[in-house]
Amino acid sequence: MTAPAGGTPAGQAWLTAANVVRWRRYGEGGQELRPGTKSHRGGSKVYVIGTYAGVAHEQLTTIGRGRHTGTYITTDMSTRNLHTFRAVPVHSPTVLRLCEEAGAGGCWMSRQDAEELAALLGRLSVGYRTTSWAGPHPTPCRCHECLTLSPA
Rank of each mutant, 00 (worst) to 15 (best):
Thr2Leu: 05
Ala3Asn: 13
Pro4Ile: 07
Ala5Gly: 10
Ala5Ile: 11
Gly6Thr: 00
Gly7Asp: 10
Gly7Leu: 02
Gly7Gln: 08
Thr8Arg: 13
Thr8Ile: 14
Thr8His: 14
Pro9Glu: 15
Gln12Val: 10
Trp14Ile: 00
Leu15Met: 14
Leu15Cys: 06
Thr16Pro: 05
Thr16Ala: 10
Ala17Gly: 13
Ala17Glu: 09
Ala18Gly: 08
Ala18Ser: 12
Asn19Ile: 00
Val20Glu: 01
Val21Trp: 12
Val21Arg: 11
Arg22Gly: 12
Arg24Gly: 15
Arg25Ile: 14
Arg25Gln: 10
Gly29Thr: 15
Gly30Thr: 15
Glu32Asp: 09
Glu32Lys: 15
Arg34Thr: 10
Arg34Asp: 12
Pro35Lys: 03
Gly36Pro: 04
Gly36Tyr: 04
Thr37Met: 11
Thr37Arg: 13
Lys38Tyr: 10
Arg41Phe: 01
Gly42Ile: 02
Gly43Pro: 02
Ser44Lys: 08
Val46Tyr: 03
Val48His: 04
Val48Cys: 09
Val48Leu: 10
Ile49Arg: 01
Ile49Gln: 02
Ile49Glu: 01
Tyr52Pro: 09
Tyr52Asn: 12
Ala53Gly: 14
Gly54Glu: 10
Ala56Ile: 13
Ala56Val: 14
Ala56Phe: 03
His57Met: 05
Glu58Ser: 15
Glu58Pro: 08
Gln59Val: 13
Leu60Asp: 03
Thr62Ile: 08
Gly64Thr: 13
Gly64Pro: 06
Gly64Met: 07
Gly64Asp: 04
Arg65Met: 12
Gly66Leu: 06
Gly66Trp: 05
Gly66Lys: 13
Thr69Leu: 02
Thr71Glu: 06
Tyr72Glu: 08
Tyr72Val: 09
Ile73Tyr: 06
Ile73Lys: 11
Ile73Thr: 15
Met77Thr: 14
Met77Ser: 07
Met77Tyr: 01
Ser78Phe: 03
Thr79Gly: 07
Leu82Phe: 00
Leu82Val: 10
Leu82His: 04
Leu82Pro: 01
Thr84Ile: 00
Phe85Ala: 01
Ala87Cys: 07
Val88Lys: 05
Val90Gly: 01
Ser92His: 05
Pro93Leu: 00
Thr94Asn: 11
Val95Ala: 03
Val95Gln: 09
Arg97Ala: 11
Leu98Asn: 11
Glu100Lys: 15
Glu101Tyr: 08
Glu101Ala: 09
Ala102Val: 13
Ala102Met: 02
Ala102Gly: 14
Ala102Pro: 07
Ala102Cys: 06
Gly103Thr: 11
Gly105Tyr: 04
Trp108Pro: 03
Ser110His: 11
Ser110Met: 00
Arg111Gly: 07
Arg111Thr: 12
Arg111Ala: 08
Gln112Met: 04
Asp113Gln: 14
Glu115Ser: 10
Leu117Asp: 03
Ala118Pro: 02
Ala118Lys: 03
Ala119Ser: 11
Ala119Phe: 06
Leu120His: 08
Arg123Glu: 09
Ser125Gln: 07
Val126Pro: 01
Gly127Ile: 00
Arg129Pro: 12
Arg129Tyr: 04
Thr130Asp: 10
Thr130His: 10
Thr130Val: 07
Trp133Tyr: 13
Trp133Cys: 13
Ala134Arg: 05
Gly135Thr: 14
Pro136Ala: 12
His137Cys: 13
His137Trp: 03
Pro138Lys: 00
Pro140Ile: 00
Pro140His: 00
Cys143Asp: 03
Cys143Gly: 06
Glu145Tyr: 00
Glu145Gly: 05
Cys146Met: 09
Leu147Ser: 11
Leu147Asp: 07
Thr148Phe: 00
Ser150Pro: 03
Ser150Asp: 06
Ser150Ile: 01
Ala152Cys: 06
Ala152Thr: 13
